[in-house]
Amino acid sequence: MRRRTFLGMSSGLGIVATGLLPAPASAGWRRPDLVVAADGTGDHTAIQAAIDAAPAGATEPFVIGVRPGTYLGQVIVPSAKTLIELRGLGRRPEDVVIADDRANGTPKPGGGTWGTSGSASVTVDGAGFRASNLTFANLFDEAAHPEITGRQAVAMLTRADRLVFERVRFLANQDTLYVNSSAAGVIARVYLRDCYVEGDVDFIFGRATAVFDRCRIHSLNRGSTPNGYVTAPSTDIGNPHGLLFDHCRFTSDAPAGTVFLGRPWHPNNDPNAIGQTIIRRSWIGTHIPDLAWSAFGTWPWEEARFAEYRNHGPGALVSANRPQLTGEQAASSTIEAFLRGPDGWKPERC
Score class of each variant (00 low, 15 high):
E147A: 08
I217W: 07
G115E: 12
D213M: 03
Y196C: 07
R189H: 02
A188L: 05
V211L: 05
V96P: 03
A144D: 11
N133Y: 09
R130G: 01
V154G: 00
P109F: 14
C215Y: 07
T149Q: 13
G228C: 09
V124Y: 00
T176Y: 10
D101I: 11
D202R: 07
N133I: 12
R169P: 02
D202E: 14
G228I: 13
D161V: 00
F212R: 00
A144H: 07
L171F: 09
G128V: 04
V97C: 05
G105D: 12
T116E: 15
C215S: 05
S219Y: 10
C215I: 10
D200H: 13
A137V: 04
G150K: 07
A103D: 13
I148Y: 12
T106N: 04
A155M: 09
Y178W: 14
F170T: 04
D194E: 15
Y229P: 08
L139F: 07
V154C: 03
L139A: 04
I217N: 01
I98R: 01
A172P: 04
L177G: 03
S182G: 04
E142L: 15
A143V: 15
G150P: 12
P109Q: 07
R102A: 13
V168D: 07
C195T: 11
P146D: 10
R207V: 09
T225Q: 11
V97S: 03
R193N: 13
R130Q: 08
F136K: 02
A160H: 01
Y191Q: 07
N104V: 14
S121N: 03
T209H: 00
I148G: 03
Q174L: 15
R130F: 08
R130V: 12
A120N: 03
D175P: 10
F140R: 00
A99Q: 04
V197Q: 08
V168S: 02
Y229G: 02
N221I: 07
V179A: 12
I98A: 02
A103N: 08
R167M: 11
F212P: 00
D213N: 04
A153D: 13
G126M: 01
A143N: 12
T149G: 06
E166S: 07
C195M: 11
T209F: 01
G112L: 10
K108W: 10
